Simulated assay, not measured.
Amino acid sequence: MITPIFRIFDTEKATNFYRDFLGFTIDWRHQYEENMPEYIQVSFHNALIHLTEHHGDASPGSSIRVKLDNVEDYHHILSQKEYAYSNPGMRHTSWKTIEMTVTDPFLNRITFYEEK
């Protein structure tokens, strides 16, 4: 399994986005001591992502693709939530996928896709 690492700058914003909006589970958090950067693992279905406040672990603006069954159903669930900072759209591609891309508060992108 490959685990991507996304750079974040605020764990509260990350938690609001990944857990509260996208429905990811926070598996664990690590912080060497108070007032130091935090490192978090989140998961959703077959996706596992590490989120880091540590400078040098990753660059903001990364992008990943996550294969997901029923992307349209997931899109509908997200559309019903009152999250002010994201309103993802859907698209049917010429390469026979249905895709929904979300951008986190740190400009990292996740494209959820389903092959048709």
Rank of each mutant, 00 (worst) to 15 (best):
I2N: 03
I2G: 01
T3W: 00
I5Y: 02
I5C: 08
F6N: 09
F6A: 03
F6P: 02
R7C: 08
D10T: 09
N16T: 08
F17A: 04
Y18Q: 04
Y18V: 08
R19S: 09
D20C: 05
D20K: 15
L22N: 03
T25D: 11
I26L: 13
D27T: 11
D27P: 08
D27L: 14
W28L: 06
R29C: 01
R29G: 00
H30D: 14
E33K: 15
N35T: 09
N35G: 04
P37Q: 11
E38F: 00
Y39T: 04
Y39D: 09
V42Q: 03
F44R: 12
F44S: 09
H45N: 14
H45C: 14
A47D: 05
L48I: 15
E53H: 12
H54K: 12
H54F: 11
G56N: 02
D57Q: 09
A58H: 04
P60C: 13
S63A: 13
V66W: 04
K67Q: 12
L68M: 15
L68Q: 07
L68G: 07
D69S: 14
D69L: 12
N70I: 01
V71N: 00
V71P: 00
E72F: 00
E72P: 01
D73P: 00
Y74R: 04
Y74C: 05
H76Q: 13
L78T: 07
L78F: 06
S79C: 07
E82F: 05
Y83I: 02
A84C: 03
Y85G: 05
Y85F: 09
S86G: 06
M90G: 07
M90I: 15
S94N: 13
S94K: 11
W95I: 06
K96D: 13
M100G: 02
T101R: 13
T101Q: 15
T101P: 01
T103F: 04
T103V: 15
D104S: 08
D104F: 02
I110R: 01
T111C: 15
F112V: 08
Y113D: 04
Y113V: 01
E114G: 05
E114N: 07
E115C: 11
E115A: 12
K116F: 06
K116E: 08
